[in-house]
Amino acid sequence: MVRVKLWGSLRALADGEEWVEVEASNFKELLDALAEKHPGLAPQIKRGVSLALDGVIYREAWFTKIGPENEVILMPYMVGG
């Protein structure tokens, strides 16, 4: 199981949970599992999210490995100028 932290404004769409536990071994499985467990998160996931894995931010890397030992933080999709 992987514990993933949601940012505050997503929690209302995930039964108020700050940390969600899902079965996943990579970024894509994590997103799929989150959307299945909490369908309210699906629109945001579809629009795009970033993922911080032990402090390193990933934008779209589906096959990035994730394990229970990692700090996993869901973040908005990064944009720049």
């Binding site: 940012w7 505050g8 404004s9 769409l13 629109p43 945001q44």
Partner: peptide, 20 residues
């Protein structure tokens, strides 16, 4: 408005976020 925006606000409000 995105689904994160609470009901009852002006339709001009499209985005709500919270961190901390």
């Amino acid at each position: 408005a995105l689904e994160t925006v609470p009901a009852g606000m002006s339709q001009n409000v499209t985005t709500h976020c919270q961190f901390g």
